[in-house]
Structures are given as C-alpha cells and as structure tokens.
Amino acid sequence: MNLLEKFLTYERFEMDWRRLLVQGILIALTGATLAMASAFNPNAIVLTARHLSWLPVSGMVILSLGLLECLDAALTKEPRDFLQNLQVGVLDAVIGTMIILSVTEEPSRLSMMIATFLIVRGIVRATLAHALQLPHILVTSLGGLISVIMGFLIWKQWPTGDGWFMSICLNIEIAVRGWAMMTFALWVRTQNVDIDSD
C-alpha cells in the first residue's frame, strides 16, 4: 500500500476548536498589527521596496495562509472541504507570490491585482458560505462584503492609491479572516458540547 492509499484510509480528522481558535486569534492579530503598522508607519521600507509600505510582508502572510489552506485541502477527505480549501489556498498563494515578486514595481501597478483579489476573495467567501451552508453565514458574508468594499476603494483609488492604503486593506482582510475563523471555532465548540451531552 503506497503512502497516498494509507493516508486516504484514515477517517476524517476531528476539528479541534482550540486549534482553530488559536489559529484564528493569530491570524486576526497579525492582520490587525500589520494594518496598524501600515497606518502609523506608511513609509516603511520592507525588502528594500520603496512606496509599498508593508505590502511585501502582507504578501508573505497571504502566501503562508494560502499554503496552509492547500495543506488543509490535502488533509481533508470530504470533496466539498477539499474544493473549498483548494480554491481559496491557490488564490491566496498565487496573489501572495505575485505581491512578493513585485517589490520593485510601483504601487499603482499592483492596485488592480489587489483590488481584484479582494473583490474575488469577498465574493468567494460569501458564496461558499451560502453554498456549503457554513455556520455563521452572516458573519462570513459581512467579512466578504468588507473585502469587496475595500477592493472597490482600491480600484477607484479612493481616498488614495498609495501602497500604504493597499497594505491596510489587505491586512484588514487578513484580520477579518481570523475573526471569521474564531467564530467558526466557537461554533465547533458548541457542536462538540451538544454531541457530548447526547
């Protein structure tokens, strides 16, 4: 029996709400910290990139989250979980890589890509929440709406098209993602309590 067959014979792993909660807290804190850094130190030079503020770090975080989503997709046994995690993971990994590789570009060249990413990410989040009947649909849809609004703000370059504003928007999206994961973890906890009480 090869490694893949052994792997697929395992039952789907239990979701540990504590791990999800800690992961959500870390993601939310990372996004909030980078958003504040982008607001209070907008002229930071990261990876020798001028005028991009904290965008390269944001790209690294998005790439990391995308790779984690792809790993989650590989570890799931349910087709719906696999497709959901893979779609989101590939999108994040590609955009994160493109942001990192574009550190020598002007921020205006990244604006359309980042705006499109935020709009698509928001629409995908809200659509998957409804299609897969995920818990806390309202919270997930609100997070998706925030991403879509920020994408349109970047597209219209309002209030500005500078790198620090794009960085703030990306990092708010990361923080909202962590927030949604925390609410999901608390829902998993209540489900486990209900199962244990039966």
Rank of each mutant, 00 (worst) to 15 (best):
residue 21 L to M: 11
residue 22 V to A: 01
residue 23 Q to M: 07
residue 25 I to V: 13
residue 25 I to A: 05
residue 26 L to A: 14
residue 30 T to K: 03
residue 31 G to A: 08
residue 31 G to T: 07
residue 32 A to L: 13
residue 35 A to S: 06
residue 35 A to F: 00
residue 36 M to S: 10
residue 38 S to M: 03
residue 40 F to Y: 13
residue 40 F to R: 04
residue 41 N to D: 12
residue 41 N to F: 15
residue 42 P to M: 00
residue 43 N to I: 08
residue 43 N to Y: 10
residue 44 A to H: 11
residue 45 I to M: 14
residue 47 L to R: 05
residue 48 T to E: 15
residue 48 T to Y: 14
residue 50 R to G: 11
residue 50 R to I: 03
residue 51 H to K: 14
residue 52 L to Q: 07
residue 56 P to T: 05
residue 56 P to S: 07
residue 60 M to A: 05
residue 60 M to I: 08
residue 64 S to A: 14
residue 65 L to G: 04
residue 67 L to F: 07
residue 67 L to R: 10
residue 70 C to T: 08
residue 71 L to G: 05
residue 74 A to G: 15
residue 77 K to M: 11
residue 77 K to L: 01
residue 79 P to F: 07
residue 80 R to M: 13
residue 83 L to T: 12
residue 83 L to R: 10
residue 84 Q to W: 07
residue 85 N to M: 06
residue 87 Q to I: 14
residue 89 G to L: 00
residue 90 V to Q: 08
residue 90 V to S: 11
residue 90 V to T: 10
residue 92 D to K: 10
residue 92 D to N: 12
residue 94 V to S: 07
residue 98 M to R: 12
residue 101 L to N: 05
residue 101 L to D: 02
residue 101 L to H: 00
residue 104 T to I: 09
residue 105 E to N: 07
residue 106 E to T: 15
residue 109 R to T: 10
residue 110 L to S: 00
residue 111 S to F: 13
residue 115 A to Y: 02
